[in-house]
Computed example of a mutant assay.
Amino acid sequence: MTQIIDNFAAIADQYDVAFVDLWGCMHNGITAFPDAVNAMQAFRAGGGKVVLVTNSPRPWESVARQIFDMGVPEDCWDAIATSGDSARAAMFRGIVGEKIYFMGESPRDDDFLQPLRIIDNPVNIQPVPLTEAEGIVCCGPFDPLADPAVNRPDFLYAKQKGLKLLCANPDIVVDRGEVREWCAGALAALYTEMGGESLYFGKPHPPIYDLARRRMEKLDDLPEDPRIIAIGDGVHTDVLGGVQEQIDVLFITGGLAATETQTKDQPDPVALQAFLHKAQTTATYAIGFLR
C-alpha cells in the first residue's frame, strides 16, 4: 500500500540521494514551484544530494540555464542527468546512422546536434531530408499542439525504408502551465504502433538511470552504497522507472495525474490506489505536490 505523506522532510532522513524529476515536480514549464525548491534546499542542507533526472532532450547545461530562468536556483541541486545527454551519446556513436532526419522545435532543440566531446571518434551527424536519411532523431514534434497522427505519412515512408527512430524524450505529454503539449514519446509510440523501431534513452529506460548514477558517483561525501529515492509525477516514466531500478519512489500526484488521483492538496487514497492498479505499478510514497 502506498503511504501518503505530508512533506518530504517526513522521510528525507531515510535517503542519501534523490533522483528528482523536473517538469511537474520542480516547475510547471513556466515557473518554479517554491515549495519544491525549499524542500530540495532543506534536503541538501541536511546532507542529501539531489540529482535532477529529466526527460528533457536538451544537454544538461542548457537545462540548468532554462530552470534557473524559471526560478529553480543552483543551490537546490547537485547534478543533472538528461534524456538528451543519454540520447546524444548514442546518436554520436552512430546508432541511427550519420544522415539523420531531425524532428524538433527550432531553435529550442538545436543544441541537441551540437558536437559531443566526450565520445571518441564520433560519427559526422548530418541533418538531411527524410528521403535521404539513414535514421530519425526525434526531440519532439514540430508543433507540440498538433495531433501526432499528422506524422503518419512520413512515418509510413520511414518504416518502409527500415529507419530506426531515436527518441530523446519518452514523455508522452507535458503541461506547460495550463496547456497540455505532445512530446517525442507520443511520436515514438506512434512509430512503434505502425511497425517501426523506436529506441529510448530517457525514463523509464535504463540508460538515463545509468547516466544519473554516474553523475551521482562524481559527487563528494556519499556513502559507499547510497540510499536513493526517485521523485516524479509520471506514472509510466518516473514511477515505473524507479520500480524497475528497484529504488523507492515518491509519486507526485498533483502533476500529470491530478485528475485521476483527485488531487487538490493531497490525493484521494481510493483514487490513488485505483490509478496505480490500472497502471500496473506501485509507489512507496505519494504526495500531492513536492514540498
Rank of each mutant, 00 (worst) to 15 (best):
E260V: 07
R108H: 13
F68T: 14
E98F: 00
L163I: 03
Q41S: 14
D143T: 11
F102H: 04
P267C: 11
L256R: 13
T253F: 13
D109I: 01
I172K: 11
E61G: 08
N169M: 04
D221E: 13
I4N: 11
L222K: 03
D75F: 10
A184F: 05
D220R: 13
V20R: 08
N55F: 06
D225V: 03
T237D: 02
T237H: 06
T263F: 12
S86H: 00
E245V: 02
D225M: 05
D248G: 02
D6L: 12
G71T: 06
V20A: 13
E134N: 04
E61K: 14
Q273H: 15
A168M: 03
V37D: 10
D110P: 07
V17E: 02
V235H: 06
M91L: 10
C183T: 07
I4E: 14
G196S: 06
V37I: 15
A36C: 11
P204F: 08
E74T: 12
N38R: 14
P269F: 14
Y200L: 09
L187H: 08
R215S: 07
K218P: 07
T282G: 07
E98M: 00
V249R: 04
K203W: 05
Q14L: 09
G24P: 10
K203N: 06
G254N: 12
W77K: 09
D225H: 02
A79V: 09
P73T: 10
A258Q: 14
K161P: 00
Y191V: 07
D221S: 12
P34S: 11
G255E: 09
P223M: 01
L222Q: 03
K203Q: 05
I118P: 00
A168N: 04
F112Q: 02
A279E: 15
E61H: 15
N151R: 06
A42V: 10
T2S: 11
A39V: 12
D109V: 03
E260L: 13
I229F: 02
I80E: 04
E181G: 03
K264L: 15
I228T: 01
G254R: 07
D268L: 13
I125K: 03
F92R: 00
D6Q: 15
D220W: 03
I229E: 01
R44Q: 15
D110G: 05
I119W: 10
W23A: 12
A286C: 12
A89Q: 03
P115G: 03
G234F: 08
F43V: 04
T82W: 02
Q41A: 14
G84D: 01
V239N: 06
D85Q: 05
H205A: 07
M26T: 08
T2W: 05
T82D: 05
N169T: 08
V72G: 03
G242D: 03
L222E: 05
